[in-house]
Design a binder for these strands. Structure first.
Lengths: 346, 346
DNA sequence: CTGTTAGCGCATTCAA
DNA sequence: TTGAATGCGCTAACAG
């Protein structure tokens, strides 16, 4: 009876004071711990009077439920973990934002990590995430190491791969076909009568895939060889400028269309062209990718490829939510497509 | 003995299959569960031979430690939760990135949530975060509702407030004085001989604070009244253009300096000025804030105020880490300062 | 170096 | 509508 508190004095001296528990709240409200638990998870299972007493006790104590204990007991953490290559890239962060919002409405929180572009990093991150026992995992892209796939499969968790498309996902997939965007860009260039084209790409493997698809298709349609500048690092305005500068100086590219793997590169290329007295699009036409906010507002407005980033997050969330409530089962693969936005830079 | 597995058949049929436990690994390696725990937390406390057997068993089973159970037992979650107004804003995301990197090296993961700019949202988010029993909390800004402060204080957790400065933080603080940046901008404008000034601001309360400080100081020094355009919404290039357009059309602002609360607004203002045939900086000088990557590479390069965003993340992480290992105690308040970067737009 | 014993705070039976 | 008992998987003493 010296331990009515549920903790020995010794335990009280632990490294950090433990907080108020349902036990405490229950005692104050004159009910048992279970009743407090029920009151919080389903008020209809508790009488109005005790409900009120419990509310008062919670108010008085400042009780905050311990989700850790809840997760351990129920085997459901209400946690989703997400992996993105970069959190500072608007492409991924806006996707995560819409995903988070929808998941939060359903009571889930998101544990987010950046993986960079190294598959080994991704493996470590996946292991770390799995240890948190999430209820699902969201991954960016469809290329993962065999070990990563293996861990994911073994976990038995719902997995959504976003921002790329495959017919054979680990589990579910919400994306678009990057190769098709490159081809569509080439078709557009040809339609506009261009006989000469070049590319500037930066960032991840998907950017290179778009670029290659563009080059292949353009060469196939026109017979002209497409030169390109590739940056391993992420896309920046400075690299867009440098890319066009190198195209001009090293490849004698002074007219034609440049396909850039992102709008910020395109914007840089436009600035570089203008700084050199070249007209856009008359001398050099510039085609971007991503349809970022600024694309419509610069001079000239950037012709680009739009993908509805927010839609990816929403769709991914919906796919998961349906899986959770049993509405859907099986391997959903959703292609959200893209659209060329015709403005004035190309 | 029918339950050697540690789970009854009934339990096995739970909603989701539970994974491999230390119990399982231990049995396979011929040791007890505790030894597995020790092997993972401190290999030096286990003999090399058993260590190897345990490694093999882990390999064979694909065991992933259950951090939830670990956290419950140890009262340390190795989780830090962070709240930012917007995850798509490079200002915050780059800060979080550097913070995460350093914390991850120390074995911590980051649970990130967006609060928007509504204090009520922040309260709800804080409660949700506290329920995850993080080892610390990172908040953006120094203005929080009394209830929020109360919850945080009651939790007894280390709290770091970043991106703003106060001498009386909830716990720790790593930031800079926004008001000083506005004043410094006004001093700069006066130093450059401007007799007329205007402002364009968008986004959060801190942006308005910078703007007001600029206006106050400029008016004080020159006696000239400073007009301004404020947007409630976040800063975009389009709003930068619109802001300058309104300044010109509604306030007859055709020469002088515009202080913008972010570089993207400044960039928009520059584009708008140029589109109207006004020269930057000769007719209209533009001063930005943030020193984003593109600021140095546009035409003309943007004169702006640099704050080392990555340093905030690192400092915040270091402050926490020192608190954790007992190196530091007490309420650290760190002012990281700022610097005007003189380029050509102003 | 290794094992035993006790919880961590909650959700989930099952009974009343 | 409520409560008692049980265990989720792990860490933290304490022994040996």
């Amino acid at each position: 009876m010296a331990d009515m508190d549920g903790r020995t004095d010794q335990k009280k001296a632990a490294r950090r004071t433990r907080g108020v528990t349902m036990q405490t709240v229950g005692r104050m409200a004159g009910v048992s711990q279970v009743t407090v638990s029920r009151a919080l998870s389903d008020p209809s299972k508790v009488s109005p009077e005790t409900m009120q007493k419990i509310r008062d006790a919670i108010e008085a104590t400042g009780f905050v439920p311990n989700a850790i204990a809840g997760a351990l007991a129920s085997n459901r953490s209400k946690l989703i973990t997400a992996l993105v290559p970069s959190i500072t890239n608007i492409v991924y962060s806006s996707m995560i934002r819409s995903f988070s919002q929808r998941m939060r409405e359903a009571g889930y929180q998101i544990l987010l990590s950046e993986t960079g572009f190294d598959p080994a990093d991704e493996e470590a991150a996946i292991a770390a995430h799995l240890s948190r026992r999430p209820d699902a995992i969201l991954l960016t892209g469809i290329h993962h190491s065999p070990q990563a796939r293996q861990m994911l499969l073994a976990s038995g968790l719902p997995v959504v791969e976003v921002w790329d498309y495959t017919d054979s996902p680990i589990d579910m997939c919400v994306g678009f076909r990057h190769v098709e965007t490159g081809r569509a860009a080439a078709d557009y260039a040809v339609e506009k009568g261009h006989k000469v084209a070049a590319t500037i790409s930066a960032g991840d493997e998907r950017a290179r895939r778009r670029k290659s698809a563009f080059s292949d298709r353009f060469e196939q349609l026109t017979g002209a060889r497409v030169t390109g500048v590739d940056f391993e690092a992420n896309a920046t305005l400075a690299r867009g400028r440098e890319g066009l500068a190198r195209l001009i100086e090293e490849a004698g590219f002074t007219h034609g269309l440049v396909f850039c793997s992102s709008d910020i590169l395109a914007h840089g290329a436009i600035i570089e062209a203008q700084a050199r007295g070249l007209r856009v699009p008359e001398d050099i036409a510039v085609l971007g990718f991503g349809d970022q906010e600024f694309a419509a507002s610069v001079e000239p407005p950037i012709t680009t490829i739009n993908v509805d980033r927010e839609a990816f997050g929403r769709s991914a969330a919906d796919a998961l939510l349906q899986r959770f409530d049993g509405t859907a089962t099986g391997h959903a693969t959703i292609d959200l497509g893209f659209a060329i936005v015709r403005r004035q830079s190309a």
